[in-house]
Design a protein around this nucleic acid. Structure first.
Lengths: 110, 110
DNA sequence: AATCTTTATCGTAATATTGCAATATTAAAT
DNA sequence: ATTTAATATTGCAATATTACGATAAAGATT
């Protein structure tokens, strides 16, 4: 064994887990934060921003893209990456929802 | 190689990544959702709720606890787990912040 | 066409994660 | 003191992730 048993969970649970997993690495957090910081998203210089080799950065970008957190357009021979707001909105809604549910409970058992 | 190079990133980046990583598995999402659903958090029955063996669930609980997402009190010979709101608040703030930053940009390049 | 630039892919080593059976631990109940 | 019940730990196999050197692919530049 060793593979996640995704089939036993709901699509929604798997979807949130996929997004969270994609952000579960500091390099990918750093990439997302960099994409937010720069106004333009001509993003070839992400490699220069990160303390990682180019193939490693490329792999992290791929994972963020697969999870739906970023999208990329071909821009000449470079590629322009930027945040996909829909994914961020999903996460914000998810945690906002949990937050309000917790406020309505206030079980002081722990 | 193979280990994450945490030392190259900021504490904040590592902290968010740790929280995200802990939620990067559908079983742990399911655990969190179950803890929210039940009013009382006498939580021995998480094992019955999940399609996983007891040691596996115990391990997932441990990871959630290490990341600071849940906390547990000894309650007789059972253990009472529940959500740590501070962690959820951190995540909510983080994504809320990103969201507003994105609205203020509206770069239509991708 | 040859070269440069930028990004992706392949191959591979090191390490981490996932899952569970077996076993240990600890406190309650008999 | 034994047994029962609930949770944790150990050990291990299967798989996934992380990182990077080498190389490929594809458009831009000369």
């Amino acid at each position: 064994m060793g593979a996640t048993k995704t089939e036993h969970f709901t699509d929604k649970q798997n979807n949130i887990a996929t997004l969270a997993k994609a952000l579960g690495h500091p390099a990918r957090i750093a990439i997302v934060e960099y994409l937010i910081k720069v106004d333009t998203c001509i993003c070839g210089d992400i490699v220069n921003e990160l303390p990682l080799a180019q193939p490693t950065v490329s792999q992290h970008l791929k994972e963020l893209k697969n999870a739906g957190l970023i999208k990329g357009n071909i821009e000449g021979n470079a590629i322009c990456y930027c945040i996909d707001e829909k994914a961020i909105d999903k996460l914000q809604n998810y945690f906002g929802n949990i937050s309000t549910k917790l406020i309505n409970k206030k079980n002081n058992c722990c």
